[in-house]
Design a protein around this nucleic acid. Sequence first.
DNA 1: CTGAAAGCGCTAACAG
DNA 2: CTGTTAGCGCTTTCAG
Lengths: 341, 341
Amino acid sequence: MNTNSQPATSRDIARLAKVSQATVSRVLSGHPSVQPETRDRVLAAVRQLNYRPNGMARAMRTNRTGNIGVVVSRLANPLYPQMLQILGQHLAEAGLRMMVWSTSEADEMNALSAARESLVDGIIMTTATTNSSQLYDALKLNVPVVLINRVVEGWPCDQLSSDNYDGGRQVADYLVKAGRRRLGLIGGPAVASTIRDRLAGFRDGLASLGVALDPGCCVDAPMFSHQNGFAAASALLDLADAPDAIFCVNDVLALGACDAARTRGLNVPNDFWLVGYDDIEMSAWPAFDLTTVRQPLTRMTADAVSLLQDRITGVMREHSIKVLPNDLMVRGSTAGFRPAA
Amino acid sequence: MNTNSQPATSRDIARLAKVSQATVSRVLSGHPSVQPETRDRVLAAVRQLNYRPNGMARAMRTNRTGNIGVVVSRLANPLYPQMLQILGQHLAEAGLRMMVWSTSEADEMNALSAARESLVDGIIMTTATTNSSQLYDALKLNVPVVLINRVVEGWPCDQLSSDNYDGGRQVADYLVKAGRRRLGLIGGPAVASTIRDRLAGFRDGLASLGVALDPGCCVDAPMFSHQNGFAAASALLDLADAPDAIFCVNDVLALGACDAARTRGLNVPNDFWLVGYDDIEMSAWPAFDLTTVRQPLTRMTADAVSLLQDRITGVMREHSIKVLPNDLMVRGSTAGFRPAA
DNA sequence: CTGAAAGCGCTAACAG
DNA sequence: CTGTTAGCGCTTTCAG
């Protein structure tokens, strides 16, 4: 094996095995009609020169790179690493590679650029918003895109989410059944469909149960972060008539809220109940023991990959809009209360 | 813009702008010698057909994809998302794309495969171990690889780490200066150079200060997880003569240890002190308020990217082995104690 | 300054 | 079963 030369090409193999270059290609792509003896000679040469086919050349011919672009939001929200981990697994099983964009809003554009330059076969987007106009343009160019987690109504692409509206309702229902009446709400950026749906479900749920939600007990966090959850909860807890339960539209905010209570010497659930959304790994830790809504991440990601594969291989069908059910995870932050069935 | 046809190629542009295909290429690659008027005609055509050059074709010609492979360990350890985030930023600034492998041990191999297939220009590896024999083979094929975080002594590639040995020493020094004498240690898999160095530094530090480390107070976690930290700390806290300070070789373990204390109704720092390593974001949260050692992630990642770029562009020089200094972040888990300067 | 022409390394007809 | 041939879309000489 030469360490200084260029990598071997299929021509080098052909020469060494005394066959045509086409035959080398056949052997490597598992074409059936190759004489065993020839195949062996080729494989021997492949080993001898430590040959690997050039992926770019193959991609150019086949119009398929095997790369999938994944756009996630700030990786500081543990939900996204969790999604990436599972997604990476599913993609690897499907023989695909994962390209990740995650640093800023510009990333969405970068991902689409890559798609348009044929550097990725398709895109899985976890953070689409109605503002993503570039994305919309790309869709019209038939770039295969699957929206997962956040979705955008009416857009011509496959979409995969959990039932955030129902999740919000479940929380409302749960808190009211438990006798909580003075409810607090910590919301987030409304550009995310997930957030809008959770909020709507929560509000509608309360309304249909005849429980009022005091606007004075509703705070919107400008971004998802521990710090913002901390600040928002602090504001609520400082109210003269503080809530007896707070629903945070995601776990990161809820963990911040939990720490706000801790800092004030308040006890959850004795002083107030706390509910989050996402069931990120830390929510189950004793430090937080947070009641929250779990999204079916494994199924969502698996479906996303297979939908995308269909699109890429040109399977034509209607755009699929799937909404999967969620589970309320009852934990200590709501005293483990379970309503009678 | 046709929505049903194939994407436009540079020939299409050439035809429309009535120039040769070569000229299109010149304009797009910013070649100086093109008449302004011609250039404008080409750019107009580019806009009109909404053209983007095909990245694969370009990559095949130039032998450069602009993709960098990054191998990280379990994304469940927040250190890695944190590294990815910064790395992604630096790579994007350098006009490079980030390909992530992270699901299993097989990922290291997959990354190297991708490199050998010319699908990535180089690799940043955060989780190398002496066991990575595939990696070693790849190095001999001149695949550009930078080791960051974990390093492997004597391997022919650029390596970039923080001074884990010194970090361990600093912790030992700090605890002893504060009067702690019965020390506990929660270690981890010794395949990681980071862990070996931290442990060695800690042990050597204690030894040079004349403080004994009871082997009965040393537990090794088989893997980094909250759960394992919890279990290990539980074992130490159940000892008849429990430690008055515990050093965990990384923060994830330390957070687990913190929760073990919480679950037992013990108070940190009143009942014992706790020190971690990495300064992941959560360590600063009130729930943990963990004293820990911070690695200079920004600088490490920035240097890694620029070293890799040098290798890729063929700048020849000795393999660079850099070790950057760490900072001890003093927080509540050690009662905010600061030794007199 | 611009066009013609030669490939990069591979796959996929098409002959034989 | 195997070799020959024709490109994929681009960059890069080399002429003019």
